[in-house]
Write a protein that binds this DNA or RNA. Structure first.
Lengths: 186, 186
DNA sequence: CTCAAAATAGAGTGTATACTCAAATTCCAA
DNA sequence: TTGGAATTTGAGTATACACTCTATTTTGAG
């Protein structure tokens, strides 16, 4: 092994280029040529560091999945408010990574190993939200907590998607409003 | 002109094949070869009927967009309940078309003319939901109605996306629960 | 029945893609 | 300083894509 600094820097540039492209033009637009052009590297150098294009994409996506999680270890019990704020600050604080997360969650969710990874991650998140909801409202059954968790997550995802559609959309404001206020007046 | 019956039937087969593929494998997987194979047709026949591949895709997508609309003409004022039920029956009643709608809305929303079409459609839908909400709750300002409309639509989209992720997900049940009940207990 | 128009087949074009490879260059520990 | 390993190059390969073209077959109105 005994890697050189040059190679390590090149690898970082390639990962950065891949993340930027995934956020800007999505999975399809992120071609090998586009990655190499942006990283200032030739195809041969890319394949000296990565076995395949999907390798670089997966590295970025796994980082994005990890970034959405406030407590990756999962040992600290978190409140619903904490979880929601974590998601909001993820979207607003790391918009590049968030765009990647959303784009891949959707375009890559129905096929391949990437989709399975996304599915498992989604179920873990639902369980996490459901546990927080149950902890804060002991009157709810497990099923009811899970239903509410799914609805909260759906709303957050939907709002994030609107932000993807229109970057001027005030995601954070809407997200807080959605979680704190009832959906319809009574 | 004076079209023959054979050509009309072939055109219908091509549209059907395109819709099926868009729902099954998404926009990327819907290649010309895949369309032609499924429709039982050669490339030359396809291009005798369609100027471009995107033409066939657009036909399907525009049908999907129209299918989600309860009153396409837009003259009849609709209630929020009507709008939500229309969306639910769209997703559950025409799952193929709904899958296409969701996949394209997301994967194709950030680039090309298809994305512009989707964006305009989205804004029209927000306005429609906002009008219904304002009509049913005169205490709300226009801005508040629009905010609620965006949240309702985000929740519906998010739940539909969950159904895309897992076809066993009970979309209709969750959607009604989400719109009728407050998100969090007070 | 006729025949011009419509429809079809199927080989072919050009382009973009992911990926390879041998040779040249750069790095860095000893 | 030096030499083997890491890195980089840049031309090259194979494949898949959307789309074209010409010859042939099929259709159906008059």
């Amino acid at each position: 092994m005994a890697r050189y600094q040059a190679g390590i820097r090149t690898e970082a540039r390639i990962i950065d280029a891949t993340r930027e492209l995934l956020g800007e033009v999505g999975l399809d637009g992120t071609t090998l040529k586009a990655i190499c052009d942006r990283a200032g590297v030739r195809a041969g150098s890319f394949y000296n560091l990565f076995a395949t294009k999907e390798d670089a994409v997966l590295r970025v996506v796994k980082d994005a999945i990890r970034a959405v999680d406030p407590h990756p270890t999962g040992d600290a019990p978190d409140s619903l408010h904490e979880l929601v704020e974590a998601y909001i600050s993820f979207v607003t604080g790391q918009p590049d990574v968030a765009r990647v997360y959303l784009k891949i969650a959707i375009s890559g969710a129905t096929n391949g190993s990437l989709g399975d990874s996304m599915k498992r991650h989604h179920h873990r998140r639902v369980a996490r939200f459901a546990a927080a909801i149950a902890r804060e409202n002991s009157a709810l059954s497990d099923r009811e907590s899970e239903a509410r968790a799914e609805i909260v997550l759906a709303t957050l995802s939907g709002l994030a998607f609107m932000w993807l559609l229109d970057p001027a959309f005030d995601f954070a404001h809407r997200a807080r409003l959605a979680v704190e206020a009832p959906l319809v007046a009574h």
